[in-house]
Amino acid sequence: MVKKIIALTALSCVTLMAADFNAQAEKDRKDLIQYFEKKFSDPAGKSRSFFPYVDEKELKDNYIKGLKWQDFAKGSYSYAKAAKEQYLEIIDVPPYDDNIDNGEELYGKIKGLKQCFPDPAKAATEYPKFDDKTKQVVTLTGAINNCVVKNGGKALGWKKGKVADIEAYFAAQAKEKGLKIDVKIPSKEAQKAYEAGKRYYYAQRGYIKLNCANCHVQGAGQRVRKENLSPLLGHATHFPVYRLKWQGLGTLERRMGGCIKNMGQQPPKPNSADTRNLIYFLSYMSNGMKIDGPDVRR
């Protein structure tokens, strides 16, 4: 009996401690959800003040109101009516179907992948993961590359091609099962990595003097030329993504690099600590949201 009590107490302590490590991240995530739900509650009416540079008529005609948390998994297509219509037309015949098939084939063919990722759907939900042995964040792209190299193969790259196709297959499996993003912050070091990613996201960088939030939090929904800026909430749900600009599929690492370049800074390498921590933060913000990848974006 005493042993049982001790074991239970120890287990509760461990659980409590584990919960502590993500306490700040949970607060950040919930605050973000609250912000976006309020912002898109009624853009043409009650939440008008969130859109200082958008024309009344446009807010009335082109914005969908009353959005809730899970809606944001569709990015800017959750609120931009015209863009959503075009998107729905495009995915009538999804341009990434061949990539999923190729990914499935590669998953069966490349040595070690089946052993490293026995459940592809689950893999799509739980990365990026914090590796307590190496004390660093491992993204799904990194994990696939590590696995291939460990099994005597050559790394598949970080941005597109085979690695993106494999991720497309994993994501499609998760989407089919209705799985959700489930990123964990299991330790103090993981918490530090999360905080570093958060700082990277919210810190001003590049010669244009922007931070990521200028466009994807405060600026989400505003237009840059004809594109409505996408929300941070749900950014990690739809990767790998088929971008019309790329005419192909790309990983989250590829997209991050492009975004940072647009801010006027030389982007960090896709396997650098900066990129990994940034993806960790970004993915945590999408925790609990349904996987919707691969998907199409402009």
Partner: peptide
């Protein structure tokens, strides 16, 4: 300054 951009924190 970075915290000034975080909803629920400085923003």
């Amino acid at each position: 300054t970075y915290r000034a951009a975080i909803p629920g924190d400085g923003y």
